[in-house]
Amino acid sequence: MAFVEQLIANLLYGAILGAVYGLATMGLSLIFGVLRIVNVGHGAFIMIGAFTAYWMFTLYGISPVLSLPLAMAAGMIIGVAVYLVVVKRLVDAPELATLLAMFAIGIFIEEAAKQIWGANYVGYSWEIGSISLPFTEIPYTKLVAFISSILIAAAVYVWFRKTKLGKAVRAVVEDREGALTCGIDVNKIYALSFSLGIGLTVLSGVLVTLFTPVGINAYMGGEYTLKAFVIAVLGGLASPWGAFYAGFIFGLIENGSYTLLGLIPGVEPFGLTRFVSFVVLMLVLLLKPTGLLGGE
């Protein structure tokens, strides 16, 4: 039963990757939930995180785990800058304007990255051994990514529930008008949420590198933009928690379908999984655009 073993191994791998996918989508959902802005340049921020991990490791030998806070901080600073320069002026603009602006920001970041870091694919390998399971072997790096994702998501959850600022952000997500009348400074919440959303996204880029040993490149984000949208819509678009759970579902779908597509002769299963992402997106939009997990 080699096929079943392989399927189980791939699903396990999908669940591990799914945690990272979920984390990588929380920022997108947070920004949409609070500002009603769809960050169509999402993938570019993941790419920044990936390069952060790459340079920290190759230049200074800093392990990706230690790069996480650095990436978060860098992302938050970039987030505040983007908010102040562009997004702030577009909060009440027509949807068309914000969508195009976020799109342009993403392209700008990618092109700048290409100029600075070159167009080639790069990578690094962080060897810390692996754990043997009956069917498969899982590198510790992936377990580190899995556990970090869950811990970070949990930390964000606690921040939302327990801190005053977190509660204020949640209040804005749930009832913007109401929050305004309660004296919450909505502008400040917007800036904070945007910066936090970008911070989380850049941070997740660090963990992404643990799954793509030689996949770091200025344009690597496009793939994650599409995946993040599928996941965000699965999770209800406006809910960071929905997004986190939906990440697992997506990881399972992706890796499960990869295994199944491999059975079809004459196709290239890896490319086709991206088509599957698109089909899943369309199906969710068709059947339950508010998300499978409750959502709005």
């Binding site: 009603r36 949807e95 969508l99 678009l237 086709l272 992402s277 997106l281």
Partner: peptide
């Protein structure tokens, strides 16, 4: 917003269908 999201996938989706 949902429409914009759907269209983001179209290009990649069709390209990878043809290639894959």
């Amino acid at each position: 917003a949902y429409f914009a999201i759907a269209t983001i996938g179209v290009n990649e989706g069709i390209k990878y269908l043809i290639m894959g």
